[in-house]
Amino acid sequence: RKWEEIAERLREEFNINPEEAREAVEKAGGNEEEARRIVKKRL
């Protein structure tokens, strides 16, 4: 699934746990840019 690939990239890029990465992607509706913004806000 594409969402899992996005979550994996976010996890590696921001050094967050898989659960946090998945939550961000879900919140963003699968949009990678939006997920990235969500993760950055949390850091």
Score class of each variant (00 low, 15 high):
23 E>T: 11
30 G>Y: 05
26 E>L: 10
26 E>K: 13
29 G>D: 12
3 W>E: 06
30 G>E: 02
14 F>R: 01
16 I>M: 07
40 K>H: 12
36 R>V: 09
22 R>Y: 14
3 W>V: 07
13 E>L: 05
28 A>T: 06
36 R>D: 01
42 R>F: 09
5 E>M: 04
7 A>K: 04
42 R>Y: 11
37 R>F: 03
15 N>M: 10
42 R>Q: 14
11 R>N: 07
8 E>C: 06
22 R>S: 09
21 A>R: 00
41 K>Y: 03
41 K>G: 11
12 E>N: 11
36 R>K: 09
42 R>I: 15
13 E>R: 03
16 I>V: 10
34 E>H: 09
19 E>K: 10
13 E>I: 06
35 A>M: 01
7 A>L: 08
3 W>T: 06
5 E>T: 05
40 K>D: 14
27 K>D: 10
13 E>W: 04
25 V>Q: 00
18 P>G: 14
18 P>K: 11
27 K>M: 13
31 N>W: 07
6 I>E: 03
9 R>K: 12
38 I>W: 02
32 E>F: 12
8 E>W: 04
3 W>D: 06
17 N>H: 11
41 K>I: 13
15 N>V: 05
8 E>T: 12
13 E>V: 04
43 L>P: 06
42 R>P: 05
19 E>I: 10
13 E>F: 04
14 F>V: 02
22 R>I: 13
17 N>P: 15
43 L>F: 09
29 G>M: 14
19 E>C: 06
20 E>S: 08
29 G>I: 09
31 N>H: 09
17 N>L: 13
32 E>W: 14
24 A>C: 05
42 R>C: 04
38 I>K: 04
33 E>R: 08
31 N>V: 11
4 E>V: 06
24 A>P: 00
39 V>W: 00
13 E>K: 03
14 F>M: 07
33 E>G: 09
37 R>D: 12
16 I>S: 03
1 R>S: 15
37 R>A: 14
2 K>I: 14
18 P>H: 13
29 G>Y: 11
32 E>R: 05
31 N>L: 08
3 W>I: 08
29 G>W: 10
14 F>I: 02
9 R>Q: 08
21 A>N: 00
40 K>L: 08
38 I>G: 05
23 E>V: 11
31 N>M: 08
12 E>H: 10
8 E>M: 13
26 E>N: 12
1 R>W: 06
1 R>M: 14
43 L>D: 07
34 E>L: 11
19 E>H: 10
11 R>Q: 13
